[in-house]
């Protein structure tokens, strides 16, 4: 509780927390949507925002507000799949490489470093082109997860490397603690904050990539996400035709999401780093 109170002292944490709660509510609302998001022409086209259609309607004859609730939910699902699965990979690789050392470490880090060096975006483009038929929320999330763990594994590894040198490691080993138990019970708590902040960064990376892939037309356009909403709005020239309510909805939502996730991760990592914490409290 005290941790939370300290965190809320940072205006960035408070703002991003409120925004994320708002976005979560919006995603939750999608379960009560009166329309099926995959159907077209369920409402009159190109209506301006009004009482009946809060955010107006688009040229496909869909209600923008309810469409946006699905978009937010689906983008969150992609980013959560990507974030959580890649966390599992990063933790496994980082802990094994850091704890085992030697050749295991060298091989794992070589694979990780190669992933860092290879232009991932182009690989995603190729994969997305080839897998377009089977592309959905889960496969996209998994695809991002498979490639998005390298840097975080490196961070965890270097943390484990330093933990391994501490006295309590020797004590635990001498008193007969197994490797698995040592790593899970003793090391995990230390790495938890790091894992959490990298999770947030990975999520916003995943949302951004989804949007980029959708803009260049490499997503399944029947699944509403922030990216596909933008793609449709651009496809129908909503800027030139003055349908600002259509293009602005995904733009504003993604802006809010990116800024909130970024501020959340910055405020948490500043809180975790005592040096900057002292600066902030002392200032």
């Amino acid at each position: 509780m005290k941790v939370l109170r300290d965190l809320f002292r940072d205006y960035r944490f408070t703002i991003s927390f409120i925004v994320l709660v708002f976005i979560a509510i919006m995603a939750f609302l999608s379960f009560f949507s009166p329309y099926d998001p995959t159907l077209w022409n369920v409402v009159p086209r190109d209506m301006k925002p009004a009482a009946e259609y809060v955010l107006g309607t688009d040229s496909n004859g869909q209600d923008i507000f309810w469409q946006a609730t699905f978009a937010v939910r689906n983008s969150l699902i992609i980013s959560l799949i990507s974030g959580l699965v890649s966390r599992v990979i990063a933790i496994l690789v980082g802990m094994i490489a850091g704890y085992k050392g030697g050749n295991v470490d060298r091989v794992l880090m070589f694979i990780g470093d190669s992933l860092l060096v290879i232009p991932l975006f182009l690989i995603f483009v190729m994969l997305a082109m080839m897998l377009r038929e089977v592309m959905n929320l889960v496969t996209l999330g998994l695809m991002l997860a498979l490639f998005g763990w390298a840097w975080d594994a490196r961070l965890i590894r270097s943390m484990v490397l330093s933990l391994r040198e501490r006295d309590f490691t020797t004590t635990a080993i001498l008193s007969g603690t197994g490797t698995l138990k040592l790593v899970l019970k003793e090391y995990m708590p230390f790495t938890m904050p790091l894992i959490f902040s990298t999770l947030i960064n990975n999520m916003s990376w995943a949302i951004g990539l989804e949007i980029t892939l959708a803009i260049i037309g490499l997503a399944n356009l029947n699944i509403p996400t922030l990216g596909t909403m933008l793609n449709w709005a651009l496809f129908y020239q909503s800027i030139l035709l003055g349908r600002w309510w259509w293009i602005l909805t995904p733009v504003v939502l993604s802006l809010l999401m990116f800024i909130a996730l970024y501020w959340l991760s910055v405020s948490i990592s500043e809180y975790l780093d005592p040096r900057t914490r002292i600066q902030r409290v002392g200032a």
Binding site: V117, I118, P119, L122, V125, M126, M129, I216, G217, L218
Partner: peptide
């Protein structure tokens, strides 16, 4: 160039740009 290659499914072109990019970064 890449964007058009993606739109057309021009695999060789994408591969060319990707390979150039890999060599450039490393």
């Amino acid at each position: 160039l890449l964007f058009r290659a993606i739109a057309n499914g021009d695999y060789n072109l994408i591969m060319g740009i990707t390979i150039l990019s890999i060599v450039g970064i490393t």
